[in-house]
Simulated scan of single mutants.
Amino acid sequence: MAARRNCGSRSHHHAAGGYGGQPCIRGMRFPVKTIVHMVAQGMSTEQILAEHPDLEAEDVRQALEFAAASLDADSYLPLRHSA
C-alpha cells in the first residue's frame, strides 16, 4: 500500500517496499532526497535535468516543496552552524 503526499498538482509517492520506502518522484524510482541533495550541492535545475532527462523542472520544484513541507512534521533536525 502506498501513501500519497500531494505537493501542488502532482503526487509524490511514499511506497512501502518501493525504493526503500522513500518518497519518490511521480511513478519513477527516483528519490526526492536525491534531488534535494543535488540542489544542496549547488546544482541548478538545468544541470539536474541535463543529467536526468526523465525529470522535468516541475519535478525539481515539487521535490523541494515536499522537503519543505516535511519540516512541518513533529520532529526537527538541528542545523549545524559552522564557526
Rank of each mutant, 00 (worst) to 15 (best):
L55G: 05
V39Q: 14
M38E: 11
G42L: 14
V39K: 07
A57Y: 06
A57M: 12
L55T: 03
G42M: 09
M43I: 02
E51C: 02
D59R: 06
D59V: 09
L49R: 04
I48E: 06
D54A: 01
V32W: 02
L55Y: 02
E56C: 15
F30M: 01
E46C: 11
V39D: 12
Q41A: 12
M43F: 13
E58H: 10
E46S: 10
T34G: 10
A50H: 14
M43S: 13
V39G: 07
L55K: 00
E56V: 15
V32E: 00
A50I: 00
P31M: 09
G42Y: 12
H37D: 15
L55M: 08
P31D: 08
T45H: 10
L49E: 09
V60W: 08
A50Y: 02
Q47D: 11
M38L: 05
K33D: 09
S44Q: 05
V32F: 02
P31I: 04
V36P: 00
I35D: 13
Q47S: 12
V39M: 11
R61C: 07
V36A: 04
K33I: 05
D54C: 03
V32R: 04
Q47R: 07
V36C: 07
E46K: 12
A57L: 13
F30A: 02
A40C: 07
V60C: 08
P31C: 06
V60E: 10
I35Q: 03
D59H: 06
K33N: 11
V39I: 10
Q47P: 02
M38V: 02
D54Q: 06
A57H: 08
M43Q: 07
I35Y: 00
Q62M: 13
V39F: 10
H37E: 15
A40T: 07
I48H: 04
H37T: 13
L55W: 00
L49M: 13
Q47E: 15
E51P: 00
Q47Y: 01
I48S: 12
L49P: 14
T34F: 04
H37S: 09
Q62N: 11
D59Y: 14
M43D: 14
F30T: 01
H37G: 04
F30S: 01
F30H: 00
A57N: 08
V60T: 06
M38D: 05
G42F: 15
S44D: 09
S44R: 06
H52M: 00
K33Y: 03
G42I: 06
A57W: 12
V39A: 09
F30P: 00
M38W: 01
V39P: 06
R61M: 04
A57F: 15
P53F: 01
E56S: 13
H37P: 08
D59G: 10
V60Y: 06
M43E: 05
V32T: 02
P53D: 05
Q62Y: 10
M38P: 00
E51D: 09
M43N: 05
E51M: 03
E56K: 09
H52V: 01
F30V: 00
E56A: 15
P53V: 02
A57P: 11
Q41E: 04
F30I: 01
